[in-house]
Amino acid sequence: MKKLNPNKLYVEYRDGTTKKSPILNRKYTLTHSDETGDLFLTIGLNYAYDKISKKMRDEVLATWYKTYNGSYALYVNVFVDDPTKFTYKSSLRRNEIFIRELPLALQAIFYGDRDLLKTNPELYNAPIYIKFNSMYPCIDRTEYWLTPKDYMVK
């Protein structure tokens, strides 16, 4: 697994969010620069659609929600289908890239929002669910991806 370089992560808070609150409806938009390798994490009550490339659609979107038993879970969305090609082969390739890069993306989210986790330690053990969105049924799925404590930068 690639390791996050904290010097390449830039965090922005919006919409009344702070480093410590709120948890519920807190939304993460993670984008990156192919040229510099920089990661850009926007934390707000809404996704930062202004930061999303309409051409690539390789952002990671995530939000906290409460489960049926009152605990928290993180739900992450990625858009696997290539918006420029829409072929099965290109979707398979992008799926492989997301699987390879998602651990780094999760490290960035949890490092960038580490004060929220420190303030709310129950979040360290919250389940993470990744929704791989695709028009192809064999790629379109939801997977369990461990907990935030498994992606903390040491």
Rank of each mutant, 00 (worst) to 15 (best):
K3W: 07
L4F: 06
N5E: 08
N5W: 02
N5V: 04
P6Q: 09
N7H: 05
N7R: 04
L9E: 03
Y10G: 13
D15R: 14
G16W: 08
G16H: 00
T18I: 07
T18N: 12
K20S: 15
K20E: 13
P22A: 03
I23P: 03
I23R: 15
L24N: 13
N25G: 07
N25C: 12
R26V: 06
K27V: 02
Y28C: 05
T31I: 07
T31C: 12
H32C: 09
H32V: 05
H32W: 04
H32G: 15
S33G: 05
S33Q: 03
S33H: 00
S33N: 11
D34L: 07
E35C: 01
G37H: 05
D38C: 15
D38F: 00
L39H: 10
L39P: 10
L39F: 01
I43Q: 12
G44R: 02
L45R: 09
L45F: 06
L45Y: 02
L45N: 11
Y47E: 08
Y47S: 02
A48S: 09
A48I: 00
I52N: 04
S53Y: 03
K54C: 01
K55D: 04
M56I: 00
M56F: 06
R57I: 00
V60M: 13
L61V: 00
A62T: 03
A62P: 05
T63P: 00
Y65I: 03
Y65D: 15
K66R: 15
T67L: 10
Y68H: 14
L74T: 13
L74P: 09
L74W: 01
L74V: 04
L74I: 02
V76R: 05
V78P: 12
F79Q: 02
V80A: 12
V80N: 08
V80M: 04
V80Y: 09
D81F: 01
P83L: 04
P83T: 07
T84N: 07
K85G: 07
K85Y: 10
F86C: 10
Y88W: 04
K89G: 06
S91Q: 07
R93D: 07
R93S: 11
N95K: 15
E96W: 06
I97K: 13
F98S: 12
I99R: 06
I99G: 12
R100Q: 14
R100F: 03
P103V: 01
P103E: 02
F110V: 05
Y111W: 08
Y111H: 09
G112C: 11
D115Y: 05
L116F: 08
K118E: 09
K118M: 13
K118Y: 03
T119N: 15
T119L: 12
L123Y: 05
N125Y: 13
A126T: 01
A126Y: 08
A126V: 03
I128D: 08
I128Q: 13
I128G: 11
Y129P: 10
K131E: 06
K131C: 05
F132T: 10
F132W: 12
S134Y: 01
S134H: 12
P137E: 02
I139H: 14
R141E: 08
R141A: 10
R141T: 02
T142R: 12
Y144M: 07
Y144K: 12
L146N: 09
L146H: 14
T147K: 14
P148Q: 11
P148Y: 03
P148H: 06
K149V: 10
D150S: 13
D150Y: 08
